[in-house]
């Protein structure tokens, strides 16, 4: 099928920094592994890109205790950024991405600004084409408030990363804010080429049952994802689109073709699929194929034309 139709160009019009994707569909960070984890399920050639698991300077074992909790229409996770660390990533995971010619966004996370600066430098040195910065991490030096929740700290973080990294810079926003617009603008003025949103929403999973003569209970606090967060994601993407000129990669509960249309209308230029991969590991390619089929059947010449029809039609 004419997958070329789905070619997606994300461009920062101010700087001409550009990311070209085979399709607008990207496997979301933390749900797609590092490289070929989904090769048993999909033809990786049909994937726009993989966003890698969030990589930190040092490897991390993540959180102890229960890490996942299912809720109606989604799940809560508190994985705690378990990852192999940047050094192992470069040594073990990157060669496979290169050999298999898999396009990817390197998703990074840090505890301090210096962590992010170092990671950005390493990404530069290894000629990594696109960086996705997870700013939903506690800033250890500033009372553990997330970097991404304050426009000033986000601006400063983004500009420092920008100094060390000239490739395509994506800032991934946290939805746990009352003012997503200011955050998107801060990232844009700090030098981001693109915004991706949303990361998980804060949530609490509660399980309580009365068995025998006592309550059996469990509470899991973490990040909420899946179809239940879609309305929030649509709202945030729309707010961001209205606030900035740079492209927006949308995510949050996407699992079917109509979701793609909804997100385009809200302002998406590309998509990431997260939790839905757990239900249907082949979803990224099946969505790409469905989208392609829809476009062929209805005579949309390319992805830009489709977007135009949705936005202006």
């Amino acid at each position: 099928m004419g997958i070329e139709k789905l070619k997606t160009v994300l461009k920062n019009e101010k700087t001409n920094n550009t990311l070209i994707l085979k399709t607008p569909i990207i496997g979301a960070s933390g749900t797609y592994g590092y490289n070929i984890e989904y090769a048993d399920f999909i033809n990786l050639d049909y994937l726009g890109a993989i966003s890698t698991k969030g990589i930190t300077l040092e490897s991390r074992l993540g959180n102890d205790g229960d890490r996942i909790f299912e809720v109606q229409g989604g799940m809560i996770n508190r994985i705690g950024l378990e990852n192999v660390g940047i050094e192992n990533f470069i040594k073990e995971k990157l060669p496979v991405l290169k050999e298999k010619k898999i396009d990817f966004l390197l998703n990074i996370a840090g505890n301090t600004i210096e962590d992010y600066e170092k990671l950005a430098l390493i990404a530069s040195q290894n000629e990594i084409k696109a960086l996705e910065v997870n700013v939903s991490c506690p800033n250890v030096k500033q009372g553990c408030l997330e970097f991404g929740l304050n426009p000033e700290s986000l601006f400063s973080l983004t500009s420092k990363i920008r100094k060390n990294y000239k490739g395509f810079l994506i800032v991934k926003l946290s939805p746990n804010t009352s003012d997503i617009k200011s955050l998107a603008m801060a990232a844009e003025s700090g030098g981001a080429d693109c915004i991706s949103a949303i990361n998980t929403l804060r949530g609490l999973g509660v399980d309580i049952k009365y068995i025998g003569n006592k309550f059996i209970k469990k509470m899991v606090q973490g990040g909420l994802s899946g179809s239940c967060i879609k309305p929030v994601a649509l709202y945030m993407v729309n707010q961001i689109k209205n606030a900035v000129k740079i492209p927006v990669i949308a995510m949050g509960g996407i699992c079917k073709l109509s979701d793609l249309f909804e997100f385009i209308l809200a302002g998406a230029d590309a998509f990431q699929i997260g939790t839905a991969n757990f239900q249907t590991p082949s979803i990224c390619t099946s969505l790409a194929l469905e989208l392609c089929e829809f476009m062929e059947k209805n005579n949309f010449y390319d992805f830009e034309t489709l977007k135009g029809a949705i936005l202006n039609g």
């Binding site: 933390g30 749900t31 797609y32 592994g33 984890e37 989904y38 048993d40 698991k53 074992l61 993540g62 229960d66 890490r67 996942i68 909790f69 299912e70 799940m75 996770n77 994985i79 378990e82 939790t275 991969n277 757990f278 590991p281």
Partner: peptide, 16 residues
Amino acid sequence: KVMACSIGVCRGCVIK
């Protein structure tokens, strides 16, 4: 262990 992906990617089911 409770599982989400069941294929090793989410790291939800790890033990030490």
